[in-house]
């Protein structure tokens, strides 16, 4: 009880700090220095319609690399954590209920479509409000669906690891190519910028974003698979 009270007290203080933030907050009426630059330069420099994508993949590409690495790291650690304990016999200790006919059939129908949607989303990341992370997450949702239908289904860890590693390495490789053939690490202009708004525009962005999509999809899948393998132990 006392603990709750103390926590409340501190949160009240924090709330007061937040209030101060709110009271003093004045929304911008003009784009600030950085945003203004992006608005003015993205189209001609990067060639991506989606400015957010340009920022994520190019201007702040290093962040994104870190972000992908966060997922990579998390997947690796989840793998380490969950493989660490030797499960007492791989056999199931309780009977899992059958997944219904509806789910099974539905998943057969939906999984390819979901995969397709995922690919669409990350390939068109520079044109539409989508991108590698969103696309990757969609792909992983297909895996989730499969796992829901058949929780005991085994996925090839090697395959996932290979996709994970290869897409990551290629991502880095394109980044390095940027250093050699363009202005710097992860500069997308090693390929022609192209015409604004078309699929093959924005230089290397579609490729990078596709790789990110694959990698994110692989990481999420790896986490899901690892978590699902704890089932029944």
């Amino acid at each position: 009880m006392i603990k709750r009270f103390i926590v409340l007290l501190f949160l009240l203080a924090l709330g007061l700090i937040f209030t101060q933030l709110l009271v003093e907050y004045i929304p911008d009426s003009e784009l600030n220095l950085t945003a203004h630059y992006y608005a003015e330069h993205t189209a001609q420099d990067i060639g991506a319609s989606n400015i957010v994508t340009a920022i994520i993949v190019t201007y702040r590409g290093l962040d994104t690399l870190g972000e992908v690495t966060v997922l990579f790291l998390t997947a690796a650690i989840v793998g380490l954590l969950l493989s660490k304990g030797n499960y007492k016999g791989k056999s199931l200790q309780r009977q899992l209920p059958q997944s219904g006919e509806l789910l099974t059939t539905g998943s057969h129908l939906l999984v390819p479509l979901i995969l397709l949607l995922g690919a669409y989303v990350f390939i068109n990341g520079h044109l539409t409000p989508g991108g590698g992370f969103q696309g990757g997450a969609i792909i992983a949702s297909a895996i989730l669906l499969i796992l829901l239908t058949d929780p005991l289904r085994k996925f090839s860890h090697t395959l996932i690891a290979t996709i994970e590693a290869t897409s990551g390495l290629l991502f880095l490789f394109i980044g390095v190519l940027g250093m050699i053939y363009a202005g710097g690490f992860l500069d997308n202009r090693l390929l022609p910028v192209g015409e604004l708004g078309t699929l093959f525009s924005a230089g290397a962005i579609p490729f990078i974003y596709s790789l990110i999509g694959l990698k994110v999809g692989a990481e999420f899948s790896s986490m899901l698979v690892n978590l699902s393998e704890t089932e029944g132990s």
């Binding site: 630059y37 190019t58 201007y59 702040r60 590409g61 710097g184 992860l186 997308n188």
Partner: peptide, 13 residues
Amino acid sequence: DMFTAGTAPPFAI
């Protein structure tokens, strides 16, 4: 200083 993305700071990292 080492730039990324072929763009000078503060617009790139």
